[in-house]
């Protein structure tokens, strides 16, 4: 599995309140949420983002509230992957549970610039900055988490397990 797209770059501690402000949480409709993604720190994001694009950010991406609406909004915008120096733990869990690919790679997150075109191979964890030619290697997920992703999310993996138990 691969994704390729242009990079939107953000700071450390991007919180879920700016990913999707709570004033829009009176709905869980992914399309409505996606229309307001990142708007409090980047009004241009939803206008410019296209399928496969990549968010690159600093430390503690997704900190704050547990709202699953945050990874859902990012994913529904078409973002193919979020690369960060580190992720807040609830966001990390939620992204995996809903199937938004995320990679922790401090070096790539430091060096990749806004507007660069980046290719990601999820099978190998390799990140290639096509603009600069530089390659990076992200930490692969532990097998337990890979299984959740392979099944298509947490609920699908539970269903699969329950059925094989019967």
């Amino acid at each position: 599995m691969q994704t390729e797209g242009k990079v939107f770059k953000y700071r450390d501690n991007v919180d879920t309140d700016v990913i999707i402000p709570a004033r829009y949480l009176n709905t869980s409709d992914p399309k409505e949420l996606a229309a307001h993604c990142m708007e409090d720190i980047d009004r241009e994001f939803v206008k410019k983002v296209s399928k496969g694009d990549i968010i690159v950010a600093g430390y503690n991406f997704g900190c704050g509230s547990s709202r699953e609406h945050a990874p859902l909004a990012i994913s529904t915008c078409g973002v193919g992957c979020v690369i960060a120096k580190s992720f807040a733990r609830i966001f990390f869990r939620n992204a995996i549970n809903i199937g938004l690919p995320i990679l922790e790679c401090p070096e790539a997150a430091e060096e990749i610039s806004a507007g660069d075109t980046v290719n990601i191979n999820f099978d190998t964890g390799s990140i290639t900055n096509l603009t600069t030619g530089k390659k990076y290697k992200a930490q692969p997920f532990p097998p337990f988490i890979q299984n959740i992703i392979k099944s298509g999310g947490l609920l699908a993996s539970i269903k699969e397990r329950d059925e094989s138990d019967e």
Binding site: S65, I90, R93, N94, I158
Partner: peptide
Amino acid sequence: GADSHTCTYGALGAFSTGVGSTDMAAAMAT
């Protein structure tokens, strides 16, 4: 709890942590 401030109940000597909605769905079932 599907709310990040679920960590509050640690004050009572419990393990308590925030998760997302999908985790809550799975937990309600299992």
